[in-house]
């Protein structure tokens, strides 16, 4: 597993832990109310688990496991995948700032924009690796 996949997958696991900790507190609060302000964290729970865990893990595994080129560089445009990693995580935190921390609609918009950028950069990296064994 390449170093960048290790970073991305470890980040995904951390988001999983963060997301389910918030989720467990919310579920417990549903059963035995103890802290109503917890509901403010619902968007963070969703964002951490959908984008931080599921999407990020998928990208990390794809970077590792998609077919590699026969010649160097085996994984083309690795820098694009790194930019995708940075943008995705920036996006997640801006979305959480815009929702849970109510930093404003433009912060939320910028976060979503960063996430779109992350996907585009990752696609630019991965597109050429989505091939058969014959390279077609």
């Amino acid at each position: 597993m390449p170093r960048l996949s290790q970073w991305i997958i470890r980040a995904a696991l951390i988001y999983l832990l963060s997301g389910i900790t918030i989720g467990a507190l919310l579920l417990a609060h549903k059963g035995a109310p103890f802290l109503p302000v917890l509901w403010v964290w619902l968007p963070a729970h969703i964002e951490f688990l959908l984008m931080g865990w599921i999407v990020q893990l998928t990208l990390g595994v794809a970077f590792w496991i998609l077919p590699r080129y026969w010649q160097q560089p085996r994984r083309p445009h690795e820098g694009y995948a790194l930019i995708a990693f940075v943008l995705l995580n920036l996006g997640i935190w801006l979305v959480v700032a815009g929702t849970t921390f109510r930093a404003g609609a433009w912060v939320l918009f910028t976060g979503r924009l960063a996430e779109v950028g992350a996907v585009l950069f990752f696609a630019a990296h991965a597109w050429g690796r989505i091939v058969s064994r014959e390279g077609a």
């Binding site: 696991l13 832990l17 389910i20 467990a24 507190l25 579920l27 059963g31 035995a32």
Partner: peptide, 23 residues
């Protein structure tokens, strides 16, 4: 309500143990 508290704790522990195993 205690059903949900127990459910939350069980799921949380299940995932924590898996992350410990996978890390």
């Amino acid at each position: 309500g205690w059903l949900l508290v127990v459910s939350a704790l069980l799921q949380w522990l299940g995932i924590v143990f898996f992350v410990y195993l996978a890390w």
